[in-house]
């Protein structure tokens, strides 16, 4: 079996090219900040950033100047408030103007599904009466060919690269996730290339012991990166909680453009890799985020010979 294990530095260097469309999915959970920070460190430029919820990671990436455009459906700091860097880019064109392509959540999910299954569009019951189709011409309406009225459609979305964070994967990229599944599977199948980042690298037998949990098969994966706490300050179900103190702190510090650049200098540019970042975050914080255990009852697949 192919061993695709590599470092984040190599994976980003190889698969994220200037001008590429990049999707780092994960709905509140599993947000791969480790990948985002490496993209910033490697000074990638003119990227199209794709995510339903840009969250802090795209706020940081836009502030760092990697993006030319974002494709999204909800621009907020979840449970806290606004994303100030993105607001500055949109309202003031600072540090640079940002092109927007905006959908609703189901529209984005539908775009990934159409992209993943090579369909020309995805139909959904949405957008009727909304002003959004008026500012995004790619949201359209078609008459149902079966004569039951109008339905909204969205076009396929096929990112050049999708980066998905998982609890565990084997070195071939077979990845297992549990918790909020968001649209990670759809975004991965829609992409031309996939990088899987995992909290733990396990052997193939562990994956095969629970095949229902394999969301992403290695066959669509180019590179596998082992990066414990790679989603901090977001969370990974059963591994660590969201570092909400950081989400609140970002709300304060990101109001000031200079403050953001100082933060990027200290926490991204001056840091060689994720291990150094984690040393800086400190054991105490990481321990504080570990939840008490709540294992699922075991399931029995049976042996059939």
């Amino acid at each position: 079996m192919a061993d695709k294990l590599t470092t984040m530095k190599e994976a980003i260097g190889l698969y994220v090219r200037d001008g590429a469309s990049v999707c780092i999915e994960g709905f509140t959970a599993f947000i791969c900040f480790a990948a985002g920070h490496e993209i910033i460190r490697q000074k990638k430029r003119n990227l199209t950033l794709i995510r339903m919820t840009p969250d802090l990671i795209y706020d940081q990436m836009v502030a760092a100047g990697v993006a030319r455009k974002i494709v999204f459906s909800y621009l907020g700091n979840p449970g806290v408030g606004a994303l100030h860097c993105l607001r500055r880019a949109i309202e003031k064109g600072s540090p640079a103007p940002l092109e927007l392509e905006e959908y609703s959540h189901y529209g984005m999910v539908g775009r990934y599904i159409a992209g993943a299954s090579k369909l020309p569009f995805f139909p959904l019951r949405s957008y009727l009466g909304s002003d959004l189709p008026g500012v995004n011409g790619r949201i359209r309406f078609v008459d149902s060919p079966y004569g039951d009225g109008m339905v909204a459609v969205v076009p396929p979305l096929t990112p050049d690269i999708t980066i998905v964070h998982a609890q565990r994967a084997d070195s071939n990229g077979n990845a297992q996730l549990w918790g909020l599944l968001g649209a990670q599977k759809e975004a991965a199948f829609a992409a031309k290339n996939v990088i899987v980042v995992a909290e733990e690298i396990v052997d193939e037998a562990t994956i095969r012991s629970d095949p229902n949990r394999t969301l992403i098969p290695g066959i669509i994966v180019e590179a596998v990166v082992h990066e414990p706490f790679g989603a901090h300050p977001s969370y990974v179900q059963g591994y660590y909680d969201r570092d909400n103190e950081f989400y609140l702190k970002w709300d304060e510090l990101s109001r000031d453009e200079d403050g953001v650049q100082k933060w990027l200098d200290e926490w991204v540019y001056a840091v060689a890799d994720r291990s150094e970042y984690l040393r800086k975050v400190g054991k105490e914080t990481l321990e504080r985020l570990r939840p008490p255990s709540a294992p699922a009852a075991a399931v029995d697949y049976g042996t059939y010979r």
Binding site: Y74, L86, R87, S126, Y127, S130
Partner: peptide, 21 residues
């Protein structure tokens, strides 16, 4: 204005399809 907003708000999230369905 959508293209030059004085305040950019979060957007729909799921709200459009929630309001419709």
């Amino acid at each position: 204005d959508y293209r030059r907003p004085s305040v950019r708000l979060p957007g729909s999230g799921g709200a459009i399809e929630i309001a419709i369905n």
